[in-house]
């Protein structure tokens, strides 16, 4: 098991997350794609922590912080989606243009 294996895996997951973030029209799916991207970053951190810094595991500490921020982001994001849904009666991302022009 090499470091490159995990890095390529994390890169693939990140690209899938970007694709879903841009192309999906359901607002909840956008949040799911953001979670995918955060998990890819976590996988990178864990890989570097295991292979380059195996004694002082600072990467795992950073991963715990990223998980914390991701949980907070998910809660606030879903609350925003609920508020928008209550105002606009839709969750289509193409129709959320309140701040667009």
């Amino acid at each position: 098991m090499q470091l490159q294996y995990f890095l390529v895996l994390a890169a693939a997951l990140f690209c899938i997350g970007i694709y879903g973030l841009i192309t999906s029209r359901n607002a909840v799916r956008v949040l799911m794609s953001i979670e995918l991207m955060l998990n890819a970053v976590n996988l990178n951190l864990m890989g570097f922590s295991n292979f380059l810094d195996p004694t002082g595991i600072k990467g795992q500490v950073f991963t715990v912080f990223v998980i914390t921020v991701a949980a907070a982001e998910a809660a606030v994001g879903l609350a925003i989606i609920l508020a928008i849904y209550r105002n606009r009666e839709t969750i289509d991302m193409e129709q959320f243009n309140l701040l667009k022009w």
């Binding site: 909840v28 864990m46 922590s49 879903l78 609920l82």
Partner: peptide
Amino acid sequence: LLNADFVAAAQILIYVGAVNVLILFAI
């Protein structure tokens, strides 16, 4: 596999147990 047992347990607890359930509730 990357020798991080605590973070693996925290991943299951927080992501699967909290974030995923929260997303299902939002759906």
